[in-house]
Design a protein around this nucleic acid. Structure first.
Length: 887
RNA sequence: GGGCGGUUAGCUCAGUGGUAGAGCACCGGCUUUACACGCCGGCUGUCACAGGUUCGAAUCCUGUACCGCCCACCA
């Protein structure tokens, strides 16, 4: 397509089509359609790997709405894609939709007013409730319908169908927006994170890890969201500042060795299994190895030393509960403490613990313990807290009053209540033992900007456990696993039955493992499907394998993987980027891509991240309509990699003006393009050489992912080109100085326009294509990126001496231009009034240039005569204006 | 507590050792045969602060302050 360079001065007058009054309006619709018809952005899979540039596009969450931040970062990627395409690469640029996971479930529940009940059988004839009358719809809500409303229970397969239906609609709307924005995506390669291919890749990759012992299942304390009732991963945590209180509580009441601890969670006293203090803490050294009785429940718990205990926190001795926080888990594990679990998966205090006669509830006063516990049993942690505080106050074990504080509490990032730690059976992927290897991968990856690598290192170094990938949810990729049920009806988790690879993807809730019959599901001697689905990131971390068609299309995979670029935002380095590197390292022993380009965020004018909750999100389609896609792209592309950028409609207006300027300047440059000839005028040659220097700089900057600099430099050049160069040569083009001089200007103008349009094409994709179509064949977006050498080769004389003198001449001409304009402006004289004479006193070398540039200057400045003398200091003086004609 | 960015004109931002820049805003002028969605010109600064290196620092080093973000086993 584009390896051959575009002729710079060829201009076929018969081919030329100049509009009378060019305008931006309608360009988006016109070119979007033509690009699609022409397959301009179609990936050519016959090209060898060396000529491929593959991009691992972030799949936006379709259940949300696209916002300005998406437009911003996706434009960055598109600009790079367009550059690489013009460099001659076959660009592999698919688009994905992230429709998998909780956000979609919630949207479907609200939209259709349904709940998923996995115990129900699939109903093939099911039709969803009309959303407009569903209880969860906005209309119903506005009628004042409140909880208690009937939500329809549907089976898991039916629920998933609804998810697919709704996301399908969202995806069409998104595609329309991306096309209007001008993303140069190959729409024939679209994927979704819940589609069959993504499911197959997810399950296949999981099965392979399982076979290699890199995925495992274990029953262990896990981070748990009590509202969604699912396990969550460390990467999905966030801290939130919450009000709380320190409670000083006495242990060992009545005994000789009473100990005071401080806690923010007194409701966990019944789950207390030990107290810990620092091994060197003189206050508690004598107590190590002894036991102490818990208040209210009278359970003897050991006092143990552990280096994680902080002498300075609280009273220096901490209560270990199973489980209050992650530190508890560490202490529990390292000190081999028993489990005394009281929080149920729904967040309420369990009843079971009380009546387990064989369990660890060895109270010195079981009756009193039970009486106390019954008062909090069944309550949530938050509700139990004041109750237990009141009991402690009554028993005299609360020392002083609770001291209110604000502290950071861990939440699931999509959750509403603090996380608990609940013991449950979950799937994990081994991560910790690969920490060093992953850190090395992070150093191998080329980061843009480089300092973003620190985030990766930070995260890798802070990992404290393997990756929990199972979720107790519905709309996700299921694990391709069943378990045998023994004759007693117990599920044998230790002997998973993994689906054979050719069967993938499978849904174990409907499919049957080899060697079993459907009616054996759930029966003694039969089987049970794994009920869980995978963490969204367990699928998203395989986007390179999904788009490159791993284990499906070896030829395509070999040409595209490892990919070249992962563009993404910095807030998901710890999830998407890290997990993708992990999966690729484990499966392919390589990086998934060579480069990572990290976009910043869009900030609102108060410098806060734009978000829906703040109500400051502007709909992208309205922006595109108001400012034009090129105007919005201009704003987005001026955001440097990694840098947060202020939302600024003003910059979009500037971009729009630039696009209009491109239209008009192009029309002018092409309007009298004949005759064409050799570029022989020094001013023309200097302009061409300066443009060649710009091309070199722009190419280097683009190779370094600094697209913002390319735009800025090109824009600056272009504006000077219009205001100085075009003005200077205008008269000459009209024939003031004869046909040869005009031909030189015309040739230079044509060449410059061709190059400038191509430099702008990645940014102002619509207007440049429009102008290109006036006089060129084919799309500018598959034309070759300009080469400095092509410009310079137009100049017959390119000796050093000529180069220097041309440059000096050009600068001298613009100096005079500037000085005379200034004096005219200060004299408030209209341009139509000719200047009768300008006297120029200057250095010998500049005076020498006057005959060369005088004609250009006379016409562009409307000066009738220059009078030149040698001398210093330099002095350029407008002597007078032609008197206004009276009458 | 650890880490990473940032601090330059009223605003948004370029500028990594050599006389402080652009756009916007503001002020003045101009219907000029590409463009009034335009053109010409003007005003605007202790480059956060304090030290240091250097002939020379917005730029390099050290420290401080403030803003933002990431991370952490904050009882």
């Amino acid at each position: 397509m584009s390896e051959s360079s575009t002729p710079l001065t060829s201009l076929d007058p018969a081919r030329l089509r100049l509009p009378e009054k060019p305008a931006l309006e309608g360009l988006e619709a016109k070119w979007t359609a033509r690009w699609e018809e022409g397959g301009v952005y179609r990936f050519d899979r016959t090209r060898p790997r060396a000529e491929v540039f593959a991009i691992d596009t972030p799949p936006p969450t379709v259940s949300g709405s696209l916002h300005v931040g998406h437009v911003f970062s996706f434009t960055h990627t598109d600009v790079i894609a367009r550059f690489q395409r013009m460099r001659g690469k076959s660009v592999f640029y698919p688009m994905g939709w992230d429709d998998n996971g909780l956000p979609t479930e919630r949207r479907v529940q609200n939209y259709y007013g349904v709940r998923c009940d996995p115990s129900l059988p699939y109903d093939p004839s099911f039709t969803p409730p009309d959303p407009s009358t569903a209880s969860g719809s906005p209309r119903a809500a506005s009628r004042g319908d409140k909880p208690g409303k009937q939500t329809l229970s549907v089976s898991r397969p039916n629920f998933i169908e609804l998810c697919a239906r709704l996301t399908g609609e969202d995806e069409q709307a998104f595609e329309k927006l991306w096309k209007t924005l001008g993303l140069s995506i190959d729409w024939s390669m679209t994927y979704a994170t819940i589609d069959k291919r993504a499911q197959r890749v997810s399950q296949l990759a999981f099965a392979r890890l399982l076979a290699r012992g890199l995925a495992y299942q274990v029953e262990a304390p896990t981070l748990w969201d009590i509202d969604f009732r699912t396990a969550v991963a460390q990467a999905e945590l966030e801290d939130r500042e919450m009000p709380g209180a320190f409670h000083r509580i006495r242990f060992g009441a009545g005994g000789a060795r009473a100990v005071e601890i401080e806690t923010t969670r007194p409701e966990l006293i019944p789950a207390c299994v030990a107290l810990v203090a620092h091994p060197d803490d003189e206050r508690y050294k004598p107590l190590f190895g002894t036991t102490v009785s818990t208040p209210l429940f009278r359970v003897e718990v050991p006092i143990k030393p552990h280096p994680l205990a902080d002498t300075d926190k609280g009273s220096g001795i901490a209560m270990v509960c199973t489980f209050g926080d992650i530190t508890d888990v560490t202490w529990w594990r390292e000190l081999s403490l028993p489990v005394r679990s009281i929080i149920k998966p729904d967040g309420t205090l369990s009843r079971d613990v009380l009546f387990d006669s064989t369990g660890p509830w060895a109270s010195a006063d079981p009756a009193a313990a039970m009486e106390s516990y019954l008062r909090i049993e069944g309550l949530s942690a938050a509700k139990a807290r004041p109750v237990i505080v009141e009991m402690l106050r009554a028993s005299g074990d609360l020392i002083g009053e609770p001291r209110p504080i604000t502290h950071a509490v861990k939440f699931y990032e999509k959750g509403d209540r603090p996380l608990e730690i609940v013991t449950s059976r979950q799937w994990f992927i081994k991560t910790i033992e690969f920490r060093e290897a992953l850190l090395a991968r992070g150093r191998e990856l080329r980061w843009h900007p480089p300092y973003m690598q620190a985030r990766f290192e930070n995260w890798a170094n802070g990992l404290n456990g393997d990756w929990c990938v199972s979720r107790q949810r519905f709309f996700g990729v299921p694990f391709p696993v069943w378990y045998p049920i023994d004759q007693e009806g117990r599920v044998v988790f230790e002997r998973p039955l993994v689906a054979e690879e050719p069967r993938l993807p499978v849904d174990p809730s409907t499919a049957v493992p080899a060697g079993y019959r459907p009616e054996q599901r759930g029966q003694p001697g039969g089987f049970a499907g794994d009920p869980d689905v995978m963490d969204t990131w367990a699928t998203s971390s395989l986007t390179p394998q999904i788009v490159c068609r791993w284990e499906e299309d070896p030829d395509l995979f070999a040409r595209t993987f490892p990919m070249h670029l992962r563009p993404q935002a910095h807030d998901i380095i710890r999830t998407w980027l890290f997990d993708t590197v992990l999966r690729s390292h484990l499966e392919h022993d390589s990086l998934p891509w060579a480069h990572a380009a990290i976009s910043g965020w869009v900030l609102d004018p108060d410098r806060k991240k734009m978000s829906k909750s703040k109500g400051n999100v502007v709909t992208p389609l309205a922006l595109l309509e108001e400012h034009g896609s090129d105007g919005v792209r201009y704003w987005a592309a001026s955001g440097r990699p990694g840098t947060d950028t202020t939302f600024d409609p003003n910059q979009m207006k500037v971009g729009r003006r630039l696009a209009i300027k491109v239209l008009n300047a192009s029309r002018f440059a092409l309007s009298s393009a004949a005759p064409q000839g050799d570029i022989v005028e020094p001013v023309d040659r200097a302009m061409i050489r300066n443009l060649a220097a710009l091309v070199e700089e722009a190419t280097d900057a683009f190779e370094g992912y600094d697209y913002a600099r390319v735009l800025q430099r090109t824009e600056t050049f272009f504006w000077r080109f219009c205001d100085d160069y075009l003005e200077l040569v205008k008269g000459r083009r009209y024939g003031d100085q004869g046909p040869a001089a005009a031909a030189s200007a015309n040739a230079a103008l044509t060449a410059a326009l061709s190059v400038l349009l191509r430099l702008f094409a990645p940014f102002l994709s619509f207007v440049t294509e429009e102008v290109w179509s006036w006089w060129q064949d084919g799309s500018i977006h598959t034309a070759a990126w300009p080469a400095a050498g092509d410009l310079v080769s137009l100049l017959a004389d390119n000796s050093d001496a000529t180069r220097q003198s041309d440059q000096a001449i050009y600068e001298w001409a613009t100096d005079v231009l500037f000085e005379v304009r200034k004096q005219r402006s200060e004299a408030k004289q209209p341009l139509k009034v000719p200047i009768t004479k300008v006297t120029v006193k200057a250095e010998q070398q500049n005076v020498r240039w006057m005959p060369i540039v005088e004609a250009d200057l006379r016409s562009s400045l409307r000066v009738q005569a220059f009078e030149t003398t040698v001398g210093e200091p330099r002095e350029i003086l407008v002597v007078g204006y032609e008197p206004a004609s009276t009458g």
